[in-house]
Design a binder for these strands. Structure first.
Length: 202
DNA sequence: TATAGGATAGGCT
DNA sequence: GCCTATCCTATAG
């Protein structure tokens, strides 16, 4: 695969701008010889120790979130609600617990495979609509925790697609069950009007 | 060791 | 819009 994002992209300190910059990039997986992927249209930033919404809030360090502290350029996966696997891109230098959650893709590669994995037919806009959904469509689960994005299992490419600022919406992140400024800080980025963006309950 | 609850999604009312 | 599946993790005792 060509045009893979360089390691330097993931090592940037500012996970907020990384999350924003990921919009328009392509995320691929090659699992069991099956290539699947799509254009990233929705992300969220989770900024290490000061972010109340992050697993690494207050420098909390547990076996689950250990991967967030590794050097940028790997995948952090975990299970939410016992059912859904979440795909996060670890950013920053070693020891910085920053990560960007990939929340939705516009499917472009391996549509048949994704339909089979999701058992959804005739509603392609739902294939990768939501963080749990896209992980399932790409065949990713917690066993892929720590996968190197420079490898040939999961990777991100830049194929020249860019969304201008007026095509992007910054809004409050989803599922923040606490009070305080981080509940509403606009660290969720999505493509305006894009039909593949998830629609969480308000 | 026990237990509460979570960065959700789909189906049902 | 509401309900809950389903299980691993984080905490407390």
């Amino acid at each position: 695969m060509k045009n893979k994002l360089p390691l330097s992209f993931y090592k940037q300190d500012d996970v907020i701008s990384v999350a924003r910059a990921l919009l328009g990039k392509n995320l691929y997986s090659l699992i069991d010889g099956q290539l699947t992927g799509g254009i990233i249209v929705e992300t969220e930033a989770y900024r290490g120790p000061d972010d109340r919404g992050s697993h690494a809030y207050n420098n909390k360090r547990t076996p689950r979130n250990e991967m967030m502290y590794s050097s940028g350029g790997v995948v952090y996966m975990y299970i939410c609600y016992g059912i859904h696997d979440m795909v996060n891109i670890v950013t920053g230098k070693e020891g910085m617990s920053h990560a960007a959650l990939i929340r939705a893709l516009e499917p472009i590669e391996g549509l048949d495979i994704m339909r089979d994995r999701r058992r959804i037919y005739g509603q392609d806009q739902r294939l990768c609509q939501g963080p749990g959904a896209l992980a399932q469509a790409l065949g990713l689960n917690k066993l892929h925790n720590g996968t190197d994005l420079q490898g040939d299992v999961v990777w991100i490419t830049d194929e020249g697609k860019n969304f201008a600022d007026d095509e992007v919406v910054a809004s409050a992140r989803v599922g923040m069950n606490f009070d305080g400024p981080y509940k509403t800080i606009p660290w969720r980025f999505s493509v305006k009007g894009n039909q593949f963006v998830s629609r969480p309950r308000m």
